Amino acid sequence: MSWGTVIGIGSGTPSYFETLPMVAQGAVIWGAIVNPVAAVGLWLRANWAIFFWMAAIFTQLVLAIWAPVSAMLLVVTLVEVVLIGIYWAIYVRTLRETPVD
């Protein structure tokens, strides 16, 4: 979503990204960088990836509410929030099942 906004997929001239306030542009670029970093970290099963994933989703949520880039961003962000809830539910369940030595 973020890269599509930055490079202007589906927007006219000037692109929608260019018409956003500078702060919103920064948030979109932040998402464009952090989302792939989080994805690679989650793929590698790195501990730091969870932080980046949650930071990216929090940024998207703030952006979707404060300076809506598109309605689709809000939908994607809400789906990601649900995925975080599922992740935490599974995480808590595994903590309960793991025996403490």
Results as ranks from 00 to 15, higher is better:
Thr98Ala: 15
Leu61Ile: 08
Ile57Phe: 12
Met72Tyr: 14
Val75Ser: 05
Ala89Pro: 00
Val79Glu: 03
Phe58Arg: 07
Pro68Ala: 03
Ile84Pro: 01
Trp66Asp: 02
Leu95Trp: 05
Pro68Asp: 01
Leu63Gln: 09
Glu97Val: 14
Val62Lys: 10
Thr98Asn: 15
Gln60Met: 14
Ala71Cys: 03
Trp88Ser: 00
Arg93Val: 07
Val69Trp: 02
Ala89Asp: 02
Ser70Lys: 01
Glu97Leu: 13
Ile57Cys: 13
Val76Gln: 11
Thr98Glu: 10
Val62Gln: 07
Ile86Lys: 01
Thr94Leu: 15
Ala64Asp: 01
Val79Gln: 09
Asp101Thr: 12
Val100Trp: 07
Ala56Pro: 03
Ala71Gln: 05
Leu83Pro: 00
Leu61Asp: 03
Ile90Val: 06
Pro99Ile: 10
Ile65Thr: 03
Ser70Arg: 09
Leu74Ala: 13
Leu95Thr: 03
Phe58Ser: 11
Val75Met: 07
Arg96Met: 10
Val79Ala: 09
Ala56Tyr: 14
Ala56His: 09
Ile65Val: 13
Arg93Leu: 11
Ala71Pro: 00
Asp101Pro: 05
Ala89Asn: 00
Glu97Pro: 03
Met72Cys: 10
Thr98His: 15
Tyr87His: 02
Thr59Glu: 13
Val100Asp: 04
Val100Ala: 08
Trp88Asn: 00
Ser70Ile: 02
Val82Tyr: 12
Ile65Arg: 08
Ala67Trp: 06
Thr59Tyr: 10
Ile86Cys: 09
Pro99Met: 09
Tyr87Phe: 06
Val81Met: 11
Thr77Trp: 04
Val92Ile: 13
Asp101Met: 08
Leu73Arg: 02
Tyr87Leu: 02
Gln60Thr: 15
Leu63Glu: 12
Tyr87Gly: 00
Glu97Asn: 12
Gln60Gly: 14
Ala56Trp: 08
Val92Leu: 14
Met72Pro: 09
Val82Ala: 15
Leu61Lys: 03
Pro99Gly: 15
Val92Glu: 06
Leu95Asp: 04
Val76Pro: 05
Val75Gly: 09
Leu95Ala: 13
Thr59Asp: 05
Ile65Tyr: 02
Thr94Val: 14
Val82Thr: 01
Asp101Val: 14
Val79Thr: 07
Met72Gln: 08
Ala64Lys: 04
Val100Tyr: 05
Leu73Pro: 00
Val92Asp: 07
Thr77Met: 04
Val62Ile: 15
Ile65Leu: 15
Leu61Tyr: 14
Leu74Asn: 03
Leu83Ser: 10
Leu74Cys: 08
Trp66Thr: 05
Ile90Tyr: 02
Pro99Leu: 11
Met72His: 09
Leu83Gly: 07
Ile57Gly: 15
Val82Trp: 11
Ile90Lys: 06
Ala67Arg: 12
Arg96Leu: 10
Ser70Ala: 09
Val62Glu: 07
Val69Ile: 07
Leu74Thr: 12
Glu80Arg: 04
Thr59Cys: 15
Thr59Trp: 08
Ile57Gln: 14
Ala71Trp: 03
Met72Gly: 13
Leu78Thr: 02
Ala67Cys: 06
Leu83Asn: 04
Ala64Met: 07
Val92Lys: 11
Pro68Phe: 08
Asp101Arg: 12
Met72Trp: 10
Tyr87Ala: 00
Val79His: 05
Pro68Thr: 02
Pro68Tyr: 00
Leu83Ala: 12
Leu63Ser: 05
Trp66Ile: 07
Leu95Gly: 04
Leu83Ile: 05
Trp88Pro: 00
Val69Leu: 06
Ile86Gly: 01
Ala71Leu: 06
Thr59Met: 11
Leu61Met: 14
Gly85Ser: 08
Glu97His: 13
Tyr91Asn: 09
Ile86Met: 11
